[in-house]
């Protein structure tokens, strides 16, 4: 009996090792192809997604941004009954009116002169807090000698500083 080389018996070990190495390389290759670059930066998700959410454009600027041009209206509004109502609550976001990057007016700010705007807050509803000022608009207008027109509210009330 010839003494066999000990490597002959180790052949299957090498085969398995090569196979394992091939699987490992394939896995790492697949991983680098399919896993996003910033995956796992902060946790089991794509880390860059956080910054992407942060970088979305701001559209509501708050009353201070309106005051930069409309200081008279701002002052009148700030001293009136509607002081807690934001300009953008009725007019819409400032970004639709001014390009916030360039500081240029891009469109007219909407002015809603309709009863429906006032009714959003002041139409009498059973679910509204009882101490909040609310009226049956039709009855309120008619009993005050007005005409029940679409802009009836504005005959008596200035929305910037109503009484």
């Amino acid at each position: 009996m010839n003494p066999e080389s000990p490597l002959i018996h180790a052949k299957h070990v090498f085969r398995a090792a090569i196979l394992l190495l091939a699987v490992l390389i394939a896995m790492l290759l697949g991983r680098s192809l399919f896993v996003p670059e910033t995956w796992g930066e902060f946790g089991p998700y794509r880390g860059a997604a956080v910054a992407e959410h942060r970088d979305k454009p701001i559209r509501h600027g708050g009353n201070d941004s309106c005051a930069m041009c409309h200081d008279a209206e701002y002052a009148e509004h700030a001293g009136g009954e509607h002081a807690s109502v934001q300009c953008e609550s009725c007019h819409g976001p400032v970004a639709f009116h001014v390009d916030l990057e360039e500081g240029e007016v891009v469109a007219e700010m909407p002015v809603h002169r309709s009863r429906e705007l006032c009714e959003l807050c002041h139409l009498r509803l059973e679910a509204r807090p009882a101490d909040f000022p609310q009226v049956d608009v039709r009855e309120h207008v008619l009993s005050n000698g007005g005409e029940f027109t679409p802009d009836a509210c504005f005959e008596c009330h200035d929305p910037h500083s109503p009484i």
């Binding site: 942060r54 979305k56 708050g62 509607h82 934001q86 953008e88």
Partner: peptide, 17 residues
Amino acid sequence: YHRITTGRKTACVEICP
């Protein structure tokens, strides 16, 4: 998230009269 991480309130909080 784009507002609260830059020192602003959320749009809904900001607008609530």
